[in-house]
């Protein structure tokens, strides 16, 4: 971005642009993780899901361009990314519900497996360019190019923004939402209600992985908008911390994602105005922010409000 004309104003503008551009992966993964954790399981493997989603979306968008045209191809990619996520989600759900198997460890294995799959099949797609997702130009009223580019909003982000309140309503006011909360908070009570704990968790983990896969599609098909092995910088992992910060509330996941998207762009925004010294350190700011937030919000004395009761137990 050429921010010379704006001078220092480029920094807040760059951070705001980063919020709109970079927060969608956080949002999708954290909503997926929120759904998963509400049912009482942790899925650390969403980082692998994100990478697999990014790769499959890019590959499908590239391969299907000739047959379905460059307008539909990326959306097909988004769909396939979600489906690929569901496959990984199924593996996680099945394995983490075996007796004596630790879901955190399965998550670590799924990170390695998912990124292995993504890199293995993604090798041929590093060079070619695939059709990208379109964007809404909300900045058309301005004649400053920086503002125009900052206010480009992907329709996928809008979908994510809609899913957040929808999911909150789902948890609060629907029968299925109640089932999920019951399974996550008190499996015994759920069992007494006649709910199959295994099925509910299986569905939640698979649906959550679907969302995470779409988050990956956003990475490769919108921003940064190409497939490389370094495309995800740990968003899938930070999302897990983000859900704790958001107190397992989908609406707060939205705000937290915007915050993280902004933090992610501090480094590039400062670099754009000529501050290069601590480039790598500023790039680490989302991780430092996550860590600080966890240090501040966690407490050894009581469990966090909103935490599903069965989380982290081997039930």
């Amino acid at each position: 971005m050429a921010t010379e004309a704006l001078g220092w104003w480029g920094v807040p503008l760059g951070i705001m642009a980063g919020m709109l551009r970079g927060s969608a992966p956080f949002l999708f993964v954290s909503l997926g993780e929120c759904l998963t954790e509400k049912s009482g399981k942790v899925n650390l493997g969403l980082e692998g899901t994100l990478l697999t989603g990014a790769m499959s979306a890019y590959a499908v968008s590239y391969l299907s361009e000739k047959t379905v045209g460059s307008a539909i191809a990326p959306w097909l990619g988004v769909l396939v990314a979600g489906l690929a996520g569901m496959v990984l989600g199924f593996i996680h759900a099945w394995l983490s519900q075996q007796p004596k198997v630790n879901d955190v460890a399965v998550g670590i294995a799924m990170i390695i497996f998912g990124s292995g799959i993504a890199f293995f099949f993604g090798k041929p797609f590093i060079q070619p360019s695939a059709p990208q997702l379109p964007a809404f130009e909300l900045g058309a009223w301005s004649n400053i190019p920086q503002i125009q580019s900052a206010l480009k909003v992907s329709p996928l982000l809008m979908v994510g923004v809609l899913i957040a309140p929808l999911m909150a309503w789902f948890f609060k006011s629907t029968r299925w939402g109640l089932f999920i909360r019951a399974v996550g908070d008190s499996p015994d009570a759920a069992l007494a209600m006649g709910i199959s704990i295994k099925k509910v968790r299986m569905l939640c983990i698979i649906a959550g992985s679907f969302l995470a896969g779409i988050g990956g599609a956003y990475l490769s098909l919108y921003y940064p908008g190409s497939w490389t092995e370094r495309i995800s910088s740990g968003q899938g992992l930070m999302a897990v911390a983000l859900v704790i910060f958001a107190r397992w509330n989908p609406i707060q996941c939205l705000w937290a994602s915007l915050l993280f998207g902004g933090a992610q762009s501090i480094g590039p925004a400062l670099q754009a105005v000529g501050i290069e010294g601590g480039y790598y350190l500023f790039n680490a700011s989302p991780y430092i922010l996550t860590l600080l937030i966890m240090i501040i919000t966690c407490s050894p004395k009581k469990t966090l409000t909103g935490a599903p009761g069965a989380l982290g137990t081997l039930t």
């Binding site: 075996q98 198997v101 399965v106 294995a109 497996f113 292995g116 890199f119 293995f120």
Partner: peptide
């Protein structure tokens, strides 16, 4: 001619199977 990520796929598979084997004790 396999990508170097083949090793990660293998590692991931080993990890998953080993975790499953925990439930067999």
């Amino acid at each position: 001619g396999l990508p170097d990520a083949t090793v990660y796929v293998f590692q991931g598979l080993v990890f998953l199977v080993v975790l499953y084997s925990e439930s067999l004790y």
